[in-house]
Simulated assay, not measured.
Amino acid sequence: MLQPTLASLNTLFAHALTQEPARAGPDWQVRDFHPVSGGDISHAFMLYTDGPSFFVKLNDSAMLTQFQAEAHGLQAIADSGTIGTCAPLCCGHFKNHSYLILEGLQLERQGEWYQAGQQLAAMHKRPAGRRYGFDQPSYCGTTYQPNDWHDNWAEFFAEQRIGHQLTLLNCHQKNHPDIQAIIDSVRHRLHDHQPTPALVHGDLWSGNIGFHNQQPVIFDPATYVGDPETDLAMSELFGAFPKPFYQGYDSVLPIDPDYPRRRPLYQLYHLINHANLFGGHYLEQVRQQLRQLMN
C-alpha cells in the first residue's frame, strides 16, 4: 500500500469515507493520483476525484497516534478562523497501515506574505484560555511533545520543551548534560515573561507554509497553546521569512522589543529536536547554545 495503485487508493478512499459519512461526497471515485515529495516521515499523494482533490499520508499502523494529533492540530487552526490550513477529513487504520486524508490544496511557495503575517498574528491574538499546554500531546516531526497544562509559561517551556528534549538527547546521544541546571537556567531567563496564551503552530518553518491562490496556508503543525514568539523564532531559524511577513504580523500584534533576547532560547528547542532526529552538525550547535545559556 505504501506503493499504491489506483485501485488500492480507491479502496482506501472508500473505506475512509465510510468512517466520516457526514463529509462523504456523492460516490467520489479516485480518477488519478501522484506522489508528493518533500516529506521524510510519511508517503504522501495527491488524489484527484470526480469531485474535489485530496491529500493523503500513508505510514505503518504505529503512526496513527501521530496522524490523529496532526488532524487535531489542523482542526484547531481551522476552527480559529484566522489563517488557512489543509482541513483534515479523516484518519484511521486500513489493513496494516494508517492514513490521514486532508483537503487537497495546490500550494505555491510564494504569495501574500504580508497577509500571512497578519493572519498568523490574528490567530495569536485570538483568546486561547489562561493556561499553557494543549488538550492532548502533539508531535514536532516524529518527536513526542508533552502538553500538560501549566499556569506559568517559564515552567512549561523549561520543563516540557527544553527539559523533555534534553532527556531524549541523553537517551540517544549519552551527552549527560546537567538537565536540571539547564531547566533552572531557562526558567530563570523566562521568569518575568508571562505572555498571553495563544494557539501556536509549533513548527513554523518555510517548509510548513504555502499559498493557495495567493492566500496563506499553514500545515504540518505541532500545535499547542503557548507564547506567540515561539512561532516567530522558528520562522527565523533556517532563514527568515520575507520581510513583509513580519511587517504584516507587527501591524496586527506588535512584536515586543525584548523578543530578540528570547529568540535564541525558543530556537534552542528546535535545534535540540533536530539533534534528536538527525544528529550530525545539530549536536555541535546544541552544545554551543547550551554553553552560552549556562554562561
Rank of each mutant, 00 (worst) to 15 (best):
residue 92 G to R: 13
residue 95 K to M: 14
residue 100 L to G: 03
residue 88 P to T: 09
residue 88 P to N: 04
residue 102 L to Y: 00
residue 82 T to N: 04
residue 91 C to A: 14
residue 76 A to G: 01
residue 79 D to P: 12
residue 82 T to L: 00
residue 78 A to P: 01
residue 82 T to Y: 03
residue 94 F to D: 02
residue 84 G to R: 06
residue 91 C to P: 00
residue 103 E to G: 13
residue 75 Q to K: 06
residue 96 N to E: 12
residue 78 A to F: 11
residue 102 L to P: 05
residue 95 K to V: 05
residue 90 C to H: 08
residue 101 I to V: 07
residue 95 K to S: 10
residue 77 I to L: 12
residue 90 C to Q: 12
residue 90 C to Y: 14
residue 99 Y to N: 02
residue 81 G to V: 11
residue 103 E to P: 15
residue 98 S to W: 00
residue 89 L to Y: 13
residue 76 A to Y: 03
residue 75 Q to A: 05
residue 101 I to H: 02
residue 95 K to W: 09
residue 88 P to Y: 02
residue 100 L to A: 03
residue 98 S to Q: 04
residue 75 Q to C: 04
residue 93 H to E: 14
residue 97 H to Q: 14
residue 92 G to Y: 10
residue 92 G to C: 07
residue 89 L to K: 00
residue 74 L to H: 04
residue 96 N to F: 12
residue 78 A to M: 10
residue 77 I to T: 01
residue 94 F to K: 05
residue 82 T to V: 03
residue 90 C to K: 04
residue 88 P to M: 06
residue 75 Q to I: 05
residue 78 A to E: 15
residue 95 K to C: 07
residue 93 H to Y: 11
residue 81 G to M: 07
residue 79 D to I: 06
residue 94 F to P: 00
residue 100 L to K: 05
residue 96 N to R: 15
residue 78 A to Y: 13
residue 94 F to Q: 04
residue 88 P to S: 05
residue 84 G to M: 11
residue 97 H to C: 05
residue 75 Q to L: 14
residue 79 D to K: 11
residue 94 F to S: 06
residue 102 L to I: 01
residue 74 L to Q: 00
residue 97 H to R: 15
residue 83 I to Y: 06
residue 97 H to W: 15
residue 88 P to Q: 08
residue 79 D to E: 13
residue 85 T to Q: 02
residue 96 N to Y: 14
residue 88 P to F: 02
residue 82 T to Q: 08
residue 97 H to Y: 14
residue 75 Q to V: 08
residue 103 E to Q: 12
residue 76 A to I: 01
residue 92 G to F: 10
residue 93 H to F: 15
residue 93 H to Q: 14
residue 86 C to N: 06
residue 86 C to S: 15
residue 92 G to T: 02
residue 75 Q to D: 13
residue 89 L to Q: 05
residue 79 D to S: 07
residue 88 P to I: 09
residue 84 G to S: 11
residue 74 L to T: 07
residue 83 I to R: 11
residue 98 S to C: 02
residue 83 I to M: 03
residue 102 L to Q: 10
residue 80 S to A: 09
residue 97 H to V: 15
residue 97 H to I: 15
residue 78 A to V: 00
residue 103 E to V: 01
residue 100 L to Q: 04
residue 93 H to N: 09
residue 96 N to K: 15
residue 85 T to E: 00
residue 99 Y to C: 03
residue 92 G to H: 09
residue 95 K to Y: 09
residue 92 G to V: 04
residue 95 K to T: 11
residue 77 I to F: 11
residue 88 P to H: 03
residue 96 N to D: 13
residue 76 A to N: 04
residue 89 L to W: 11
residue 79 D to Q: 10
residue 87 A to E: 15
residue 96 N to T: 14
residue 77 I to R: 03
residue 92 G to D: 05
residue 81 G to I: 10
residue 77 I to Q: 00
residue 78 A to G: 09
residue 92 G to L: 08
residue 84 G to V: 06
residue 103 E to Y: 06
residue 91 C to L: 12
residue 90 C to P: 08
residue 94 F to A: 05
residue 77 I to K: 01
residue 87 A to L: 10
residue 87 A to H: 06
residue 91 C to H: 07
residue 90 C to E: 13
residue 77 I to M: 06
